Amino acid sequence: MGQLDGRVAVITGAGRGIGREHALLFAREGASVVVNDLGSGNDGAGADAGPAGQVVDEITAAGGRAVANTENVATWQGAKALVDQAVAEFGRLDVVVNNAGILRDAFVAGIEESQWDAVIAVHLKGHAAVLHHAAAYWKARSKAGEQVAGSVINTASASGLTVPNAGQANYGAAKAGIAALTLVAAAELERYGVRVNAIAPIARTRLTLATPGMGAIFAQEVEEGEFDAFAPANIAPLVAYLATEKCPHTGQVFAVQGGCIQRLQGWTVAETTETDGPWTVSEVGARLAEWGTP
């Protein structure tokens, strides 16, 4: 028996890279998978049904169950169509893996509005749109008396959480927003039997290979038989576990790379200073100086 027997999952950005590995492992573990991928380039331009279709072919050839979906999840309509297809094809929806993403790197002083909007749309709105329609479905099932055991796994990034990356203000802002969205959704959806977590993965993908200063690191060759710490397949087992029916975790963000998994925590209080009355500008400066230079 597989860990995901009987589960129905939609996985966005599943035509290549990390998403592809999610889809293949989910299917091997017994899940029925809707493989979503618009088939666009790194920057989100264009469309190609090939990547999603190829992953579906791999799954079905191995005896698994999967269908392709090429909707644009950065639109409310596309996200709804994705959720609706899962229910129509397989009779239910149990798991959402939000993974789709693009890059349009630029420094803050030179970024164009289109570069900002495109990245925020695919990452942050794309997560929110699929999450919204899945949540509405699960809420309705719960209100109808069904015992829901839903799971959402979002995809954040170290770029937005632990390692600010110059040139990725749009990407980092979107990924930090996804982490916040995860915590809010976990608090809201628990009453309906839905858990929401996020991962911050590091792996070799077409996006990381295209990131300035990182391509050379990820492109390093690994000797045959050695453990490849940057293989995207290393990310999928954590996601599959978070998708299992009995997994207890919710409202968590996990960093994952190679053989390492870490649980992350957000902003925490580092220093505190207080006054009994109104602040003056000088007093604020004096109090903050007591903390030393950051």
Rank of each mutant, 00 (worst) to 15 (best):
N234E: 09
I217W: 13
A203T: 03
T205Q: 07
R206T: 08
A233H: 08
G213C: 05
A219Q: 11
L209G: 14
I217N: 11
P237E: 09
E226Q: 15
L207W: 04
R206S: 10
M214I: 11
P237T: 06
L209E: 12
A203M: 04
E224L: 10
L209R: 13
Q220F: 08
A216G: 06
P237S: 02
R206G: 08
A203G: 04
Q220W: 03
E226S: 15
T208R: 04
A216Q: 12
V239I: 07
A229V: 15
A219K: 06
A210T: 01
A240F: 13
P232T: 05
T211V: 09
A210Q: 03
I217Y: 08
A203L: 12
A200Y: 10
A233D: 05
D228S: 06
N234C: 09
A200G: 13
T211K: 11
G213P: 00
E226F: 15
A233G: 11
G215P: 06
A219F: 00
T205D: 08
A236P: 06
T208S: 03
P232L: 01
E226L: 14
F227G: 04
T205V: 07
L238D: 10
G225P: 02
I235Q: 06
R206C: 06
I202F: 08
T211C: 04
A216N: 01
A231Q: 09
T208L: 02
E226G: 11
E224D: 14
T205Y: 00
M214Q: 13
I217E: 15
I217V: 15
V222T: 09
F230V: 13
T208D: 01
L209Q: 10
P212T: 02
V222W: 04
V239C: 05
V239P: 01
E226C: 14
P201I: 05
A231R: 12
F227L: 10
A200R: 14
